[in-house]
Amino acid sequence: MNIFRFAGDMTHLISILVLLLKVYATKSCSGISLKTQELYGIVFLARYLDLFTDFISVYNTVMKLVFIGSSLAIVWCMRFHRVVKRSYDRDVDTFRHYFLVGGCFLLALFVHEKFSFREVFWAFSIYLEAVAILPQLILLQRSGNVDNLTGQYVLFLGAYRGFYILNWIYRYFTEDQFSRWISCVSGLVQTALYADFFYYYFISWKNNAKLKLPA
């Protein structure tokens, strides 16, 4: 564990807490893409298959449970909670995310560290996470103005993988057996997808204006 990875995990945790706060405090999921939440649920379930087989540390296990639990809880809320689901706007959240699932799984079948059940699902989860934010970003562009909590949720979610890139650079220079090009390339793509969002977020913060993404 290094400071970059810890900062990344904490930023990721904060993004989840901000999302839970928004949904539970406002009893509304307006501006949130159910499809992105479903993709993240698949990402965590596919990545943490070793949850009950490989024990790495209490921290590792607890965080995995938090990530899986929170993503499934959000999906459940947006689909079944009688108050929250009313604020879900399926007419705006129209990204065909099943193509992302299929495409990433196909890619994982061909590009992986090792052809084993675990490794293929791990690579699949890494590729899927890189593109999981697309439905959310498309929804924000369509819905125009972005409420503060949703903006902060996306900001922290994008920043966490940026910290992970620093973590991989650090581990590259401090550890010998270091081959995680799958994570690195996907992490770079993932962070790059947020580039324009970060730009417009910074502009709105500098002008102290409401965050607006150009359609």
Partner: peptide, 10 residues
């Protein structure tokens, strides 16, 4: 040891 070293990450 872990099947793959990077699986210590979240």
């Amino acid at each position: 040891p872990l099947e793959h070293p990077m699986h210590d990450e979240l």
